[in-house]
């Protein structure tokens, strides 16, 4: 844990400095957490709602935070859980029957006005959305955010070995999908 992070946690736990420390925390992590959430839920408005809920949970749960897990991994864990909960609850609420989450997310991608990628990026996103939920999160964290497996292990509460295997399978599936449309 960096010195900056240790100071930030100490200020967050102190009632007198909490509000200012929280503003610093938001400034430091809002973009990273947003892009992490956005890649899971695809749609901007959904990502915005989830990011706000994530920070509200962080604000309310700051006293329960155990410092051994690390602030950065704790924030990512909350953001990931919030995103996956959102997807699953949305799937249950949907009036249109959906076979799996991919269908809901694929629809989000096709209708997203804030998608600016070229054809190959669109195909890559489509291939990612076809992955099972856990593999998709592992792939995004490793491929786009280049998160260390050790940190990812704390975020997803999964062993490093299982995460490596998961990433390997995900990359192979995406490669197959890209080859199919080549």
């Amino acid at each position: 844990m960096s010195k900056n992070e240790i100071n930030l946690i100490a200020n967050l736990k102190n009632e007198k400095t909490r509000e200012l420390a929280f503003q610093n925390l938001v400034q430091q992590y809002q973009e990273r957490l947003y892009w992490h959430i956005r890649k899971i839920v695809i749609n901007h408005d959904d990502a915005d709602d989830i990011l706000q809920n994530t920070f509200v949970k962080i604000w309310k749960g700051i006293d329960k935070f155990r410092e051994e897990s690390g602030l950065y991994t704790w924030l990512y864990r909350i953001a990931t859980n919030e995103s996956l909960t959102f997807i699953n609850s949305n799937k249950r609420r949907s009036l249109i029957p959906m076979n799996d989450t991919s269908e809901f997310l694929m629809n989000n991608l096709e209708t997203d006005t804030y998608f600016d990628g070229d054809e190959i990026q669109l195909r890559l996103q489509q291939a990612i959305l076809l992955l099972p939920e856990k593999q998709r999160v592992v792939f995004n964290l490793r491929y786009f955010e280049e998160m260390k497996y050790e940190d990812m292990s704390k975020v997803l509460e999964t062993s490093v070995g299982a995460l490596k295997a998961s990433y390997h399978h995900a990359a192979k599936k995406i490669e197959e999908h890209l080859t199919k449309y080549d």
Partner: peptide
């Protein structure tokens, strides 16, 4: 080794956000 085609794709972010989104976020939060 496992995905040569994938490794050639540039890791540019294909998603955008509305203008000033991150500037306003703190206040909305």
């Amino acid at each position: 080794n496992i995905a040569p085609k994938l490794s050639k794709i540039k890791k540019d972010n294909p998603f955008k956000v509305p203008d000033n989104y991150f500037d306003d976020f703190s206040a909305r939060l």
